[in-house]
Amino acid sequence: MKYLILLYGTQADARTDATDLLDDVNRELRESGEFVEAQGLAEPARARRVEHLRGVPVVTDGPFAETQEVLAGYWLVDCAGLERATEIAARFGGTADVREVECAAEVDLAPACVAMAELVMGTADDQLALPTPCTDYPVADLIRHVDEVAGGGAELGDGWRVRVARQLATLRRAWIDPAAWTGTGHLDLPKRTWGRIVLTELVVHGWDLATATGQPFDLPAGTLRACFDHVAEFVPNAPLPELWGPPVEVPADAALLDRIVALTGRDPR
């Protein structure tokens, strides 16, 4: 489940360097697979507050009173439940609100779309001809394929990174709608199955692209679990089995991402 942790502090706190603590927490969350997103906010002196008094907007510029608590940053985590989210919030040492994030879609594709967009933006021109673990596709063709999955499909040209990243954002928004998961789609497969196929394309080809270009590829545990559950059931019985290579054997306690790519015919070692 996803939780938003809102961290508060005073203007005096904004002058305190908490970089080491925040780096430690972020590292722990990435290692546990619970990290989704985090962002600190600018100091209150650069903030602006809008209130309504008798229906009239009143704007107040920062800085605010030294002791007044203001929003300092947020963390989006994907963890087991409210108790675990509370444990994470307590690590920051200040005042924090913990709120569950409601997601109407069956599976949240946002983390995989964002991670893929980051990989695309980080791919250099001189890497486009490199081979990838997906043997049919060098890097350039793999990115074209991802673009097609996202509903694009144009040739890579000027500004291709931004265009593909925007297409992935469009894909993310499309699958937020619960209606996208109902009914039947291509090959008479349920749309809820197609949503999981799209997720698998992003996860597996994200790993392909990250491996080929030497970039990090981190996904929350919930995203990986949803992908693994689909791959373990669907790939052995896929209507087009030629799309996947024979599974690669990995230890039972291997990382979830390694188990996913192994089931799709890739060697994670």
Rank of each mutant, 00 (worst) to 15 (best):
W194I: 13
V139T: 08
R27K: 13
V164T: 12
L142A: 08
L209G: 04
D229R: 08
G62P: 09
G245C: 06
R173V: 10
N26K: 15
A80V: 12
L22D: 10
L109K: 08
H230E: 01
L119D: 11
D78E: 07
E118M: 09
T184G: 00
T123F: 02
D125N: 13
Q39C: 11
A117K: 05
L4Y: 09
F64I: 12
E201W: 09
W160C: 01
L256A: 02
C79G: 00
R173M: 13
T170K: 14
G152D: 15
T10R: 03
E51M: 12
D188K: 12
A129L: 11
L171F: 10
P236I: 06
H52L: 15
A47P: 03
L41G: 03
L199A: 00
E66Y: 02
W75H: 15
R166M: 14
L21S: 05
L189P: 01
A210L: 09
A115F: 07
A117F: 03
P251V: 01
V77R: 01
A47C: 09
G55S: 04
P44R: 08
A165G: 01
F217G: 01
H52Q: 09
A262L: 01
R269G: 04
T123I: 13
A254F: 01
P131N: 11
F228H: 15
D24G: 11
A117I: 11
V70K: 05
R91W: 15
G81Y: 09
N237Q: 12
Y8K: 02
L202K: 13
E249T: 10
E43P: 02
P57W: 07
L82M: 12
H186S: 00
G33F: 07
H205Y: 09
D13M: 04
F92A: 01
R144K: 14
A255G: 14
V70C: 03
I260L: 00
I260H: 00
T135N: 01
A226R: 10
V235E: 00
G55H: 08
R54M: 11
E69S: 06
D141I: 11
E201V: 14
D218L: 13
A112P: 07
Y74D: 05
R172G: 04
A14C: 02
R91L: 13
E118C: 05
V101L: 09
V235F: 00
G81V: 11
R99V: 15
L171W: 13
L22M: 14
L219F: 04
W175Q: 04
D61M: 12
L209C: 07
E87S: 05
L256I: 15
M1T: 10
L243P: 04
F92H: 06
G94M: 10
E155G: 15
V203A: 00
L257Y: 02
A110F: 05
A47N: 09
L29G: 01
R266N: 02
P236A: 06
G265R: 01
V25M: 12
R144E: 15
A115V: 12
F92M: 11
A42S: 06
H230I: 07
C134S: 04
L71M: 10
T213S: 04
G151R: 14
D218W: 10
D20L: 13
P131G: 09
R27A: 09
H230C: 04
G214E: 14
G122N: 07
L189E: 03
H205M: 07
H52F: 15
V146F: 02
T95F: 05
I197M: 03
G222S: 09
